[in-house]
């Protein structure tokens, strides 16, 4: 794993990394990948498993679970920035 690979992964992960951080992370992640790569020999020719855990659907009636707005204020209070009943973010589409 090279420093450039880390910088690419960091971008995908939406985490800004400094050059020094990228160098250190490249070393750590190379070590960890080296360790976990033994997974290949463990599975051998065993058929790949596609399901993860116990899978079953959990359904409920499509109805109003609670009174509208009863949690709005509690949840909006958590937001770093708000505008009335909205969570405020920077412009998403750039029309330049």
């Amino acid at each position: 794993m090279k420093k450039e690979d880390i910088e690419h992964l960091a971008k995908l992960s939406r985490i800004a990394v400094t050059s020094a951080e990228a160098t250190a992370l490249a070393e750590d992640i190379t070590d960890i990948l080296g360790y976990v790569s033994e997974i290949e020999e463990i599975t051998g020719t065993h058929a790949e498993v596609k399901e993860v855990g116990l899978l079953y659907n959990v359904m409920r009636e499509d109805e109003t679970p609670h009174e509208g707005g009863m949690y709005t204020e509690d949840l909006l209070a958590c937001a770093p920035e708000r505008d009335g009943q909205y969570v405020k973010v920077k412009k998403i589409l750039n029309n330049k």
Binding site: M1, I6, L9, A10, L12, S13, I15, V17, E21, L25, D28, I29, I32, L33
Partner: peptide, 14 residues
């Protein structure tokens, strides 16, 4: 995020 958290997020993304 601290270093170990970043390490695991990047590893997981990979």
């Amino acid at each position: 995020f601290g270093t170990e958290v970043k390490r695991r997020i990047l590893l997981g993304t990979y």
